[in-house]
């Protein structure tokens, strides 16, 4: 019974989130395009399914994954776990945080595979490319990018380097890749940077960044806690272009 109430609460907030989009679509459809929506019944049901699906999805995440994932991020970054022997702060270097990097990469990869907006873009890419790009391969490439990005982003928080050096280096790699990889993949690769970070990834990654920044001596959670999302949006671009390049070279040989 409680579950049902929680479901309707989540559904309500999902509907509120969608309301602006829905009203923009309706206003333009009715006042500017001035045509009835084709297959209106099917589209209506589609919207309904999307809303119900999203509400169930969010509720499930809140119930099962977020509490556990956030707790894990806290425990893995807690001083008792990192430094059980009580070594002096000055002797603690980046290598003490090994499990944090592994967790960052693993959680980055696995949440990206479950990210609904990435599934949407991957399905569309497979359809538009006539099957030349496989939805699942694309998702795996993006997930590998996010895994590397978040692991590297955690390392950055641990060592305390300024974020812009990393991001600018990443941009340079993107520029070089753009000139060498198949033209067809470039827009999709750029897009994949933006779609990776939404419903599933952001809350867990934010918890990880905050946990790290508050445990490590000399870091402020408010300033160093930011930035992981930027890493998670940059590295998929590199990964997707690399994937296209590898497939290109493979088919040529």
């Amino acid at each position: 019974m409680d579950l049902l109430i929680e479901f309707f609460d989540t559904l309500k907030s999902t509907v509120v989130d969608v309301l602006p989009i829905l009203s923009i679509i309706l206003v333009f459809q009715l006042l500017v395009i001035r045509q009835p929506i084709p297959h209106i019944k099917q589209v209506g049901f589609g919207f309904l399914y999307v809303l119900i699906g999203l509400a169930l999805f969010l509720l499930g995440l809140e119930k099962a994954l977020f509490p556990l994932g956030k707790m894990m991020a806290e425990q893995l970054t807690a001083t008792e776990f990192i430094n059980p022997a009580g070594i002096a702060d000055s002797a603690l270097n980046w290598s003490y945080y090994g499990w944090v990097y592994v967790f960052a990469a693993a959680i980055g990869f696995s949440t990206t595979i479950a990210e609904p907006s990435l599934i949407a873009v991957a399905l569309k890419a497979e359809e538009v490319s006539g099957g030349g790009i496989k939805a699942n391969s694309l998702r795996i490439a993006v997930a590998i990018g996010v895994a590397i990005g978040i692991a590297l982003g955690s390392y950055r928080i641990v060592v305390g380097h300024p974020i812009h050096y990393y991001i600018i280096c990443g941009y340079i790699v993107v520029v070089i890749q753009t000139f060498f990889c198949p033209k067809m993949i470039v827009p999709l690769a750029y897009d994949s940077g933006g779609v990776t970070t939404s419903t599933v990834t952001v809350p867990l990654v934010a918890a990880l960044g905050l946990g790290l920044a508050s445990t490590i001596p000399g870091r402020s959670p408010l300033i160093d806690g930011f930035g992981l999302i930027a890493f998670a949006s940059l590295f998929p671009i590199i990964a997707v272009m690399a994937y296209a390049q590898i497939t290109h070279i493979r088919t040529r040989n």
Partner: peptide, 28 residues
């Protein structure tokens, strides 16, 4: 128990979402 229920909800939600995506969001 909570985790199990949560996982079932997530699986159902993702299925509905993808279903509705192809039926509603993409076509509109």
């Amino acid at each position: 128990g909570d985790i199990f229920i949560g996982l079932i909800l997530v699986v159902l939600g993702l299925t509905f979402f993808i279903y509705g995506l192809e039926m509603g969001l993409f076509p509109i």
